[in-house]
Nucleic acid binder design. Structure first.
Lengths: 348, 348
DNA sequence: TTGTATGCGTTATCAG
DNA sequence: CTGATAACGCATACAA
């Protein structure tokens, strides 16, 4: 009963490799060999002694010491925009899964889209010597990222990319996704189509807007029918209300993310607007209730898991191969899930 | 331009405290003093030299080395049931926020309710010398937790507790929450009330079932009207379908979590059941769409943020004070948010 | 096949 | 006020 050794409630000092060596009557290096499974030239007798000593003492190696020596921590950092967003949790989960498969651990950090927090997390992660970083970056720390890449430090961007920075990025084909959604709405007969997006200080959103505008222009829609609305969660309702008092108001909407979807749903409900007859919409991001809502909600679904996994593969590859991924951009495709809210099942 | 020093794309060795000492013409210990803001007996001249050298070299301290020396990592581990659950992300977020305030970092691990994964994460976290652990525990590693507590290692349980283990826990008053919900339904005139819960190998769920049964018995409901259904996400639909073919089928339901809520909604929708007239329900866990759904969904809402923050306070307190929290149980109260789905706004 | 010596980058102790 | 030196726990080259 090893528990007998630790009667007192005091914090017990953990046994070290030296203790094991002493207990087993061998040297530290031999124990070290054992721990790292270099059994090749080890007599089964010493092996047995060491095994016993380890069990006896309840020895577990100290990774901190190991890391200091080996200059790697088997840990990576993830910097997400906000862990409360589905997309962030999904990619985190995917990254974590791959890490576990490969013996790595991930530290998840919330930058909240604030460059200050982002910087402070990067600094902390580096101080902790994490072997690499996967980030959903803001655009406020480009010099810092440039510095990292220049030092040969493994970094992979996810979801977003930053212009002129030589860091591989796993992204969605946002332009095409938005363009396709708008094209579908146009084809359904809509002419006045709105786009509701979060602040355009983020590449992803700008690309989506570009796709939207491109589709509208291709279809030669009059300028009066183009409603590109840059909103925050706080003012989305007000903007919608205002827009819908106007004559040429949109009959369809492309919504930028699940948060804005909620605002839209709130708006629609409060005004008693009929979906999709009075207003059709399709939203970026899959939501769990898409199929259950009345009407069901059309979505532009991102392969979040695959994207997260890909990012992790690239980063871990970079770490182990010691050379950065070949491509600079790994693009994934969104899939439209057409349901009732964009008028799929009605005759216009 | 410090960037000039690192022309080659090769991985640059980071400057150490020794490099700074050399550059500044002082000793390592003096630089160390400086880094730790022990300026008391330091001439402003040396201070300046060190400052300059640090900037010159772009020196940042190595926390791994620091941790090895100081035997603390300023890192804690969080073991959650599943990061894809809202509750887990919310508590993680709350914990992380407090950690950041106090200069700690959190490593989030997904145990997926699998004791094996849980054990392997605990081992890994300990190997990495994290200063403490917050866990939503399974009941498959009680000996391991017993060992930890016996070693005086800081652990706090969250959401769940384990019998006979001397570890402080932050929990919901599940019994009372379930009892209250059932009492409300009874008061609304329901008699046949069902309870849909996940597998009962988890204390939280058993407590809720106890609360449910207590309320039913208090109200002297006949045994035929008690529908306690232990289901998984996979078979929930089938169980519901089966139950609703029966004569004494429930007219109201208490749902155990947001996953089962989705299944119930799917069921209700596929069968065209009218809520709340043909079936009323209330669910544990707040969902973002509760107010938007048709009908709006009554919820039993947990103060996830406060619970997470409390757990973090207890753990960080234990770590810094070096003695465990006074109480063994910190109980939070759920709040019922009565909306349409449990018949709040209709006359029976 | 195993042991000895040295260093990883810090901090702590104690002289000076 | 500052510096030399010894840890911290492990891995590795080299010796034996």
């Amino acid at each position: 009963m090893k528990s007998l050794e630790v009667k007192e409630g005091l914090s017990i000092k953990k046994p070290t490799i030296a203790d094991v060596a002493h207990e087993a009557g061998v040297s530290k290096s031999t124990v070290s060999q054992y721990m790292n499974k270099r059994y090749e030239y080890m007599s089964s007798k010493t092996k047995g002694k060491i095994e016993l000593a380890i069990k006896e003492l309840g020895y577990t190696p100290n990774y901190i010491a190991k890391s200091l020596k080996q200059k790697r921590t088997l840990t990576i950092g993830i910097i997400v925009a906000n862990i409360l967003h589905h997309f962030s949790t999904q990619v985190s989960r995917a990254i974590e899964d791959l890490c576990q498969e490969r013996g790595y651990q991930a530290i998840i950090c919330n930058a909240d889209d604030q460059p200050d927090k982002e910087r402070s997390y990067i600094d902390m992660l580096r101080a902790k010597q994490v072997d690499g970083i996967i980030a959903i970056p803001t655009e406020g720390n480009t010099e810092l990222y440039a510095e990292l890449v220049q030092q040969g430090y493994p970094v992979v961007f996810l979801d977003r990319t930053i212009a002129d920075i030589d860091i591989p990025a796993v992204v969605l084909n946002n332009f095409e996704a938005a363009r396709g959604a708008v094209a579908h709405l146009l084809q359904q007969g809509h002419r006045s189509i709105g786009m509701l997006t979060g602040p355009l200080n983020i590449s992803v959103r700008r690309e989506r807007v570009d796709g939207y505008l491109y589709a509208m222009e291709q279809h030669e829609v009059e300028h009066d029918y183009i409603w590109m609305k840059e909103v925050t969660k706080a003012n989305a309702m007000a903007v919608l209300e205002n827009m819908f008092t106007l004559k040429q108001r949109p009959t369809a909407l492309v919504i930028g993310n699940d948060f804005l979807l909620l605002e839209t749903l709130k708006f629609v409900k409060s005004k008693g607007i009929k979906v999709p007859d009075e207003l059709a919409f399709i939203t970026f991001d899959e939501v769990e209730y898409a199929d259950l809502f009345q009407p069901t909600i059309s979505t532009i679904s991102q392969p979040a898991f695959q994207m997260g996994r890909k990012a992790a593969e690239l980063l871990l590859g970079h770490i182990s191969e010691k050379k950065r991924p070949a491509q600079l951009k790994y693009e994934f495709t969104a899939t439209m899930k057409l349901r009732d809210s964009c008028g799929e099942n009605r005759s216009l």
